[in-house]
Each structure stands twice: as structure tokens, then as C-alpha cells.
Amino acid sequence: MKLEERLIRSVKMRAGNVILRSDLASLGSASQLSEALRALQRRGLLVRIGTGIYAKTRVSSITGAVVPAGSLESLSQEALQRLGVTVSASSAAAAYNDGGTTQIPGKLVVNTGKRRIQRKIAVGGRRLVYENDYTRAATSAGRSLR
């Protein structure tokens, strides 16, 4: 059985919509896996949302195009959870949820606590943005972030 066929079976059997490259590492060598994942992307079975992070796809009922099987919010939350990163609501989202402001946050921002993270996750042209307690402390103390 070809590696591509084994990957298809493995992806279909997995719960959730996020597939990590590390989940599939035991199926073949790094170069074989890269080529097989590229082939699945060309066929429209997977879409890459970050380095080593792939999402399952579905066919849109409106346009008939292949789209990720979730939104940026759901896929990024699942990916970060699978990577072991704990996140909470951003300061803007927390202020809106507490009734402190009527401004709806325009982009998806998550707070990573004391953890610094640089991983890029993007779905459909939208990108996840991170904030942490270090940037909050610097801005609340009146210091510039530059």
C-alpha cells in the first residue's frame, strides 16, 4: 500500500479536524511524508494552516469549493490544545465579555499567559494573533513595547 493511501486512511480515522505532522511521522521518512502531504493538499483532502499543522477539508455547500472543515477560531483552538498550549481570552475579548466596552474585537487574539509563542496559524486569509502577560505588564506599567 502506498504511503499516500495510508495517510488518507489515517486522516479519515482521526477524530477532530486538526492533523499534526508528528501524528503521521511513524508512517514514513520525513521526505516521503512531505511529498505525500503535498499530494493530499493538491487533491484537496488537507489544507496547511501552519508549520506541521494541517486541517481536514470539506466541500462548501454554497460555492462548491474545497474549504477547511472549520473556522480559524475552532481550528486554532484545537491545534493549540493538541500542541499543549493553554490559552485564554485576550484582554479586548475579556473587556467585551465583562461589559467593560461595546467594541467587538476585530481579529482573533488569544492570551498565552506566561508562555511566549511565535507559531503562525492562518485559515482563509485570517491569522491568529497572540498576546501574553509580558506585553500586558509592559503596557500597563506605561512602558513602550519598542
Rank of each mutant, 00 (worst) to 15 (best):
K56A: 05
R58G: 05
G99F: 09
R43L: 12
V87N: 04
S144V: 10
R136T: 13
A30N: 10
Y96A: 14
I62H: 04
I104R: 14
T135L: 14
R115T: 13
S34R: 13
L37E: 04
A138C: 12
D98F: 12
R58T: 12
D98W: 10
Y54G: 08
N17E: 15
I117C: 07
V66K: 08
R116C: 14
A39I: 02
S140L: 14
S34P: 00
L46S: 03
A93G: 13
S71H: 01
G28F: 09
S60W: 04
S90R: 03
K107G: 06
V110W: 13
N97P: 01
L145Q: 14
T139S: 13
I8S: 13
G99N: 11
V11T: 08
V18F: 10
G142M: 04
L80Y: 06
A65W: 02
Y134C: 03
E4W: 01
A65F: 07
A141F: 15
V11H: 02
S91K: 09
R6K: 15
N132C: 13
V129K: 04
R6W: 01
M1A: 14
S91N: 11
V110P: 01
S61G: 11
G84M: 10
G50S: 08
A36G: 09
G84E: 05
L33T: 00
V109Y: 09
P68R: 05
L33I: 09
L83R: 09
R143E: 13
V129L: 11
L24S: 05
K107M: 11
